[in-house]
Write a protein that binds this DNA or RNA. Structure first.
Length: 820
RNA sequence: GCGGGCGUAGCCGAACUGGUAUAGGCGCAUGCCUUAGGAGCAUGUGGGGCAACCCGUGGAGGUUCGAGUCCUCUCGCCCGCACCA
C-alpha cells in the first residue's frame, strides 16, 4: 500500500515559530477589565543564579500550564514574572572574580529569560519586576519608611545571630536546623545595633487568619502556627527574699504554682548579678561565661543534659509563702517570656529532670482525681486532664478552674496577670552587606535617626565600590555614600550602611506587578484592588515560613495603611515537590541537572513540559527518568501521526471503538482533564490525554475513518493539549485548517448528553464477592438487574441454589446478592 | 518527644462521596515491519491453580452486604518543630 509522505513531528522546526506568534499576539498582555473575571496566577520569582535546569522548571511549567488553561477558560489572567535579584551569591562572586554584582545579575537574568522562552513559558513581560533596579527598590525603601512611620520599624541593640561565613546577621527564621539557611554555617552571637520590623505586633492576626487560608496546604499552615507559637498563660511575680526586687515568671500553668519549689533564670537575666551571693559568685560567673560561648544549637539540643548553678538567692512563692532557691540554667531562654520560670517538677518534664539532677523537692500538685494519689509520676497532665491537689484553697478543682481562679486572685493581689506570649520574634532586617536595598535613614549628630524624605528616594547603591576579601561591607568605605547631610538641618551626617534583608524585597513584589511601570507610587491602589489577592500562588515548600509569613505581614500592614483592600496576599497556595535525579535533588552542585537546552535539542520543549507534568503528583518529589521522557515523546509523536499522519496505520487489530464511543471518550476526557487541572492533578490529566489518544488510535485501526466526528475529536484534542504541549497544539490546530491561535480559543466544554451510555457494566456480587460482570441497559431497575444476575451461571453456582435473602443495588454500578 | 503526611505491581504511580484494586507511563515477553535499531506498530503482563476458584493495597483486629478508602492497635518511612516554660 502506498503511504502518503506525511511530515514527521519535528519539534525543533515548529516550536520557535509559535513562540514568536504568542509574543505577537500578546498572549498574557492584560489590563484591568471589569467585564471579565480576573485571575492572578503567580509563581515564586527566582533568584537569578545562572543557567536553569529542569528541576527549576517544574514550578514554571505548572504555572504556565495553569495560566494558559485559565486563559482558555475566559479569565483575564495576570501572569507576571520577575527577579529576586539582590542577594549574597552575586556579591560573593564579585569578591572572587571582580565582576560587579549588577553585571553578573543582569547576565544571569538574560540567560534565564532565554531558557524560559525556550520552554514556551510565557509571561506578561511588560510587567517584569527586578528587585535590584532603582525603580523597584525605591519603593522597597518607601515601604521601609511606611513601616517606620507606623511605628513598625525600629532600631535596637540586640544579641543577634551572626553568620561568620556570610559576614552578616540572620533573622530567627533564617536559621534552619541550627545553621545559616544560605550557607549551612553555625551562627554565633553578636551584640549589634540593628533594624527590626515589628512583626510580633501582627502575631495574633497572622495566626488567626491562617484559618481563612483553607486553600493552603495543611502542613504550611501548621508550620506557620507553630512558628508563631502563641501560648496563653500568666506572668506571676515572685518577690526576692532579701531584696526589694521581684522576678516575673511566665507560665502556661499558673494552676501548678503550689508546686513551684525553685526558680530558674536565664543566665543573661538582668537580676542575676544582684541576687548572686558572694559565696556563689565564682561559680555563677563561670557558668555565664560558659553559656556565652555555646552556640544556639548546642544550647537548644534536646540531648543536652540539664546544667545549672545555684545563685545563693531566694525568692518567695507568693502562694505558698515558702522560700524557694533561685538557680540559673541555660535551658531557660532570655528571649522568651520573661527570661525566668518557676520550676514545677511535679508537672513539667524539664523541671523534673532539673530537680532530680540537683536534688530539689518535687511535689504532687496535679492529679488525675480530685485527691492526691501520693505519687509523682513523670507524666505531665494537661489543663483539661487533671485536678489541682496540695494547692491550698484550690485543691480539688479541675486544673482549668484552678488556672482561672489563680490568675484572678493574682491580679487582685497585684502579683500577676493573664498574658499571652509568642515564639515569634521581631523580624531582623539589617544586613551588613552591599548587594541589597540601602536602608533609607541618616544619622545626624543633632537629630539622631532621620528618615530620608520620600521625595529623595531612591537612596542609590553606589555602583563603584571596592569588594574586600575580608567580607566587610563595601558601603562602609564608600565615602560618597556614607558622607551626607541631615535632611532636617543640613549639617554633616552619616548614612546608614546596612542594607535590607532580601526577604523585604520579595514581601511585596506581588503588589508591584499590578503597577510595574508606575514611577509615582509603589502600586496603584485601584489596580492592586482589581488584581489582588493572588488567586493561585505556586512555589517551593522551602518558603513555607520565611517568604510567606513576611508577605502576609507586609500585606496586612499595607491593608491597615489603606493601600490595598486584601489583607491576605495569596488565596490558594500550591507547593510543588522537587525533581531528583540519581536519588539526589537536581542541582548545579550535584551535577545531575538536565538543562532545557538539552531537552529542547533532543525532544523539543513540549516533551519536557508534558514529562514534568506527568512525572508524578506535583506536590511530591519525583525521580527524573530518561525512559519516562522517551515515553512522553512517544505519546506526542503518536498524537502527531494521528492528526497529521497517513491514512493507514496498519492492520485492523485494535479494540473496536464506535464513533459514539469515541465521542464519549472525548467528553469523559474533557471532564477529567478540567477537573484534574483545577485540582492540580496534572499527572492524571496527562494520563487521561494519553487514554484519549489511545482510543483515537483504536478507532482508526478498527476501521474508523477520518470523518467529521474524527475531525471534531482531533480539534478538541488540540485544545486539550494547548496548555501543556502548546507548540504541538498550535501546529496541529493550524494543520487542521483552524484560524487563530489555539492558545486563545475557548476550552472545550463537556456535553453531558454524550457522556451517557446505552449499556453499562454491572458488577454482580454474591455475599460481597465478585462473581460476574454483565452488560445491562443503563438505568436498569433493581428488579430487572436482579433477574439478569440470577441467570448468570457463575452467580447460580455461587448461590448454590439458595435464594438470595436480599440485594444491595447501586444503580448502573453493582448488584450484590446476599444469601444470608 | 510533639505536629503533619505516607506505605498499592519489577519501578513511578491511578482509584470522586466505602461499590470492577492496579488507569497512564516505564520495564519485561511474544509477534509484525525493518539491511539495521535504545525506532515504529500489535498483543500480553499481580501471585497460585489444568480448571471451578483461591489469595492479594506494610501487619493484626474491627465496623459493613461490601474496606486501599472508615475505626482501634501495631510496624516502617518522609517532612516540620524541637528544653518556647
Amino acid at each position: 500500500m502506498a503511504k502518503t509522505a506525511a511530515p514527521v513531528y519535528d519539534p525543533q522546526a515548529i516550536e520557535p515559530k509559535w513562540r514568536a506568534a504568542w509574543k505577537r499576539a500578546g498572549l498574557f498582555k492584560v489590563s484591568e477589565d471589569a467585564g471579565k473575571p480576573k485571575f492572578y496566577n503567580l509563581v515564586m520569582f527566582p533568584y537569578p543564579s545562572g543557567p536553569l535546569h529542569m528541576g527549576h522548571f517544574r514550578n514554571y511549567v505548572i504555572g504556565d500550564a495553569f495560566a494558559r488553561y485559565k486563559l482558555m477558560r475566559g479569565y483575564n489572567v495576570l501572569n507576571p514574572f520577575g527577579w529576586d535579584a539582590f542577594g549574597l551569591p552575586a556579591e560573593n562572586a564579585a569578591i572572587k572574580s571582580g565582576i560587579p554584582p549588577r553585571v553578573s545579575t543582569e547576565e544571569n537574568i538574560r540567560i534565564s529569560k532565554h531558557e524560559l522562552d525556550l520552554m514556551g513559558v510565557m509571561y506578561a513581560w511588560d510587567r517584569e519586576v527586578t528587585t535590584c533596579n532603582p525603580d523597584y527598590y525605591r519603593w522597597t525603601q518607601w515601604l521601609f519608611l511606611k513601616l517606620l512611620e507606623r511605628g513598625l520599624a525600629y532600631k535596637k541593640l540586640a544579641s543577634v545571630n551572626w553568620c561568620p561565613k556570610d559576614n552578616t546577621v540572620l533573622a530567627n527564621e533564617q536559621i534552619v536546623n541550627g545553621v545559616c539557611w544560605r550557607c549551612g554555617t553555625k551562627p554565633t552571637k553578636k551584640d549589634l545595633d540593628q533594624w527590626f520590623f515589628k512583626i510580633t505586633a501582627y502575631a495574633d492576626r497572622l495566626l488567626d487568619d491562617l484559618d481563612r487560608l483553607d486553600r493552603w496546604p495543611e502542613r504550611v499552615r501548621v508550620m506557620q502556627a507553630n512558628w508563631i507559637g502563641r501560648s496563653h498563660g500568666a506572668d506571676l511575680e515572685f518577690p526576692l527574699a532579701e531584696r526589694p526586687d521581684r522576678i516575673t515568671a511566665f507560665t502556661t500553668r499558673p494552676d501548678t504554682v503550689y508546686g513551684a519549689t525553685f526558680m530558674v533564670l536565664a543566665p543573661e537575666h538582668p537580676l542575676v548579678a544582684a541576687l548572686t551571693t558572694d559565696k556563689q559568685r565564682a561559680e555563677v560567673t563561670a557558668y555565664i561565661e560558659k553559656t556565652r560561648m555555646e552556640t544556639e544549637i548546642d544550647r537548644l539540643s534536646t540531648e543536652h543534659e540539664k546544667t545549672g548553678v545555684f545563685t545563693g538567692g531566694y525568692a518567695i512563692n507568693p502562694f505558698t509563702n515558702e522560700r524557694v532557691p533561685i538557680w540559673i540554667a541555660d535551658y531557660v531562654l532570655a528571649t522568651y517570656g520573661s527570661g525566668a520560670i518557676m520550676g514545677v517538677p511535679g508537672n513539667d518534664e524539664r523541671d523534673l529532670e532539673f530537680a532530680k539532677k540537683f536534688g530539689l523537692p518535687v511535689r504532687e500538685i496535679v492529679s488525675t482525681t480530685p485527691q492526691p494519689t501520693g505519687a509523682v509520676t513523670a507524666t505531665v497532665l494537661g489543663l483539661e486532664q487533671g485536678y489541682a491537689v496540695n494547692s491550698g484553697p484550690y485543691s480539688g478543682l479541675r486544673s482549668r478552674e484552678a488556672f482561672d481562679r489563680i490568675i484572678t486572685d493574682a491580679e487582685n493581689r497585684r502579683i500577676g496577670r493573664r498574658t499571652t506570649t509568642y515564639r515569634l520574634r521581631d523580624w531582623l532586617i539589617s544586613r551588613q552587606r552591599y548587594w541589597g536595598v540601602p536602608i533609607p535613614v541618616v544619622y545626624c549628630p543633632e537629630h539622631g535617626i532621620v528618615p530620608v524624605p520620600e521625595a529623595d528616594l531612591p537612596v542609590l547603591l553606589p555602583p563603584d565600590v571596592e569588594f574586600r576579601s575580608d567580607g566587610q561591607n563595601p558601603l562602609l568605605y564608600a565615602k560618597e555614600f556614607v558622607n551626607t547631610t541631615c535632611p532636617r538641618c543640613g549639617k554633616t551626617a552619616r548614612r546608614e550602611t546596612d542594607t535590607m534583608d532580601t526577604f523585604v524585597d520579595s514581601s511585596w513584589y506581588f503588589l508591584r506587578y499590578s503597577s510595574a511601570q508606575d514611577d509615582h507610587e509603589p502600586f496603584s491602589t485601584e489596580k492592586a484592588n482589581y488584581w489582588m489577592p493572588v488567586d493561585q500562588y505556586t512555589g517551593g515548600i522551602e518558603h513555607a515560613i520565611l517568604h510567606l509569613l513576611y508577605s502576609r505581614f507586609v500585606t496586612k500592614v499595607l491593608h491597615d495603611a489603606g493601600m490595598v483592600a486584601a489583607d491576605e496576599p495569596f488565596t490558594s497556595l500550591f507547593t510543588q515537590g522537587m525533581i531528583l535525579r540519581f536519588g539526589r535533588v537536581m542541582s548545579k552542585s550535584a551535577g545531575n541537572g538536565v538543562t532545557p537546552d538539552e531537552m529542547v535539542e533532543k525532544y523539543g520543549a513540549d516533551t519536557g513540559r508534558v514529562y514534568e507534568l506527568f512525572i508524578g503528583p506535583p506536590e511530591l518529589d519525583a525521580e527524573w527518568n530518561d525512559r519516562g521522557v522517551d515515553g512522553v515523546a512517544r505519546f506526542l509523536h503518536r498524537v502527531w501521526r494521528l492528526v497529521v499522519g497517513e491514512e493507514d496505520n496498519g492492520p485492523s487489530t485494535g479494540t473496536p471503538v464506535s464513533s459514539a464511543g469515541l465521542l464519549r471518550k472525548l467528553h469523559e476526557t474533557i471532564d477529567k482533564v478540567s477537573r484534574d487541572v483545577e485540582a492540580f492533578h496534572f499527572n492524571t490529566a496527562m494520563a487521561a490525554l494519553m487514554e484519549l489518544s489511545n482510543a483515537m488510535q483504536d478507532y482508526i485501526q478498527a476501521g474508523g475513518r477520518r470523518d467529521e466526528t474524527w475531525d471534531g475529536v482531533a480539534r478538541d484534542l488540540a485544545r486539550l493539549l494547548a496548555p501543556f504541549a502548546p507548540h504541538l497544539a498550535e501546529e496541529l490546530w493550524q494543520r487542521m485548517g483552524q484560524e487563530g491561535l489555539v492558545a486563545m480559543t475557548p476550552w472545550p466544554t463537556v456535553d453531558p448528553g454524550l457522556l451517557r451510555r446505552e449499556t453499562v457494566t454491572i458488577v454482580v456480587q454474591v455475599d460481597g464477592k465478585l462473581r460476574d460482570r454483565l452488560e445491562m441497559a443503563s438505568g436498569i431497575s433493581e428488579a430487572e438487574a436482579r433477574d439478569q444476575a440470577l441467570k448468570s451461571p457463575n452467580v447460580r453456582r455461587a448461590l448454590d441454589s439458595k435464594e438470595p435473602a436480599r440485594a444491595i443495588f447501586v444503580p448502573d454500578r453493582l448488584i450484590n446478592l446476599v444469601s444470608r
